[in-house]
């Protein structure tokens, strides 16, 4: 197993790309992004020393993420989401869980935007009961279903254990979530399994989406999977027999600033 631990693989691959393709193309009719690749920051990450904040793995440095604040959730909904997501994607020997990865912030931000409002989905009436083969046919928007589901998690936990969901032991939390997953809960018309499936999917997205969305903190979700993130080229590696570990790159690494 080899490691490619370069600090600037993006620049390497860009140079390679320019060398093998871009230069040959010259004034190409199409492929306009080639011009964009020769950007002002082409060598920036290689030349500039990392700032102290970037290099220090201290809690103080992490707390500087001003994006980690709430756009949609109440404080209690946030705590409930964070606790539930951590059970869906827990911290273990492999690395951080949902809480450390910032998954609850990811979910909060998603619910505040177009996805939470089902903005690009067909939400016109009438609504009829569907066969399973016909997919989601409820009037709930995602943000509504999630908010109701989180309340239901707490209500069910209080009925069973006299505590809010986020105060339960991990084993108790798993049992509550399982009851929702299996539709064994009937609270205020909340379709428990639809809520659970959505929460599960959002948790996985929050663990593995580009960190720009608020989760996958420090790209640690990608690191655990040996996923290289956003690389420009694998031309040199694609035929290699051995598995190649790479330091991942995010979309942030591609941003050109003037």
């Amino acid at each position: 197993m080899t490691k490619r631990q370069s600090k600037q693989p993006v620049d390497e691959s860009r140079r390679k790309f320019l060398k093998y393709s871009g230069a040959a193309l010259g004034g190409a009719v199409v492929g306009g992004v080639i011009g964009g690749l020769v950007g002002s920051n082409l060598n920036k990450s290689a030349k500039e020393a990392p700032t102290p904040q970037e290099s220090e793995e201290t809690p103080t440095a992490r707390d500087q993420d001003y994006n980690h604040a709430l756009m949609f959730f109440s404080q209690e909904q946030f705590q409930t989401t964070e606790a539930a997501a951590e059970r869906i994607y827990p911290k273990d020997d492999n690395g951080p869980g949902a809480q450390e990865l910032g998954v609850a912030f990811f979910i909060d931000h998603q619910m505040a935007g177009a996805y939470g409002f089902n903005a690009r989905e067909y939400m016109s009436p009438p609504f009829y009961k569907a066969e399973a083969s016909q997919g989601y046919q409820l009037t709930f928007k995602r943000r509504e279903l999630l908010a109701l589901g989180l309340d239901a998690l707490n209500e069910y936990s209080e009925q069973k254990h006299n505590k809010k969901f986020y105060k339960l032991s991990p084993e108790e939390q798993d049992a509550v979530l399982t009851a929702f997953e299996k539709d064994e809960v009937d609270l205020k018309d909340v379709p428990a399994s639809a809520f659970f499936a959505m929460l599960r999917n959002l948790t996985i997205e929050g663990a593995y989406a580009d960190p720009l969305y608020g989760g996958n903190r420090n790209m640690d979700g990608w690191r655990m999977r040996n996923y290289p993130g956003n690389q420009m080229s694998f031309t040199e590696e694609i035929e290699k027999e051995e598995f190649i570990k790479m330091e991942p790159l995010s979309l942030r690494d591609h941003l050109q600033t003037s």
């Binding site: 691959s13 790309f17 093998y20 393709s21 871009g22 193309l25 190409a28 009719v29 199409v30 492929g31 992004v33 080639i34 690389q231 420009m232 080229s233 694998f234 031309t235 694609i238």
Partner: peptide, 29 residues
């Protein structure tokens, strides 16, 4: 006379557009 560049095997084709124009699509051909 349309010139296009070689594929970089970046792993982002289906559901994505190709920034290199390496994947034939109507816009670049």
């Amino acid at each position: 006379g349309i010139e296009r560049a070689v594929c970089q095997y970046c792993g982002f084709c289906e559901r994505f557009g190709c920034e290199y124009g390496a994947k034939a699509d109507p816009v670049v051909t």
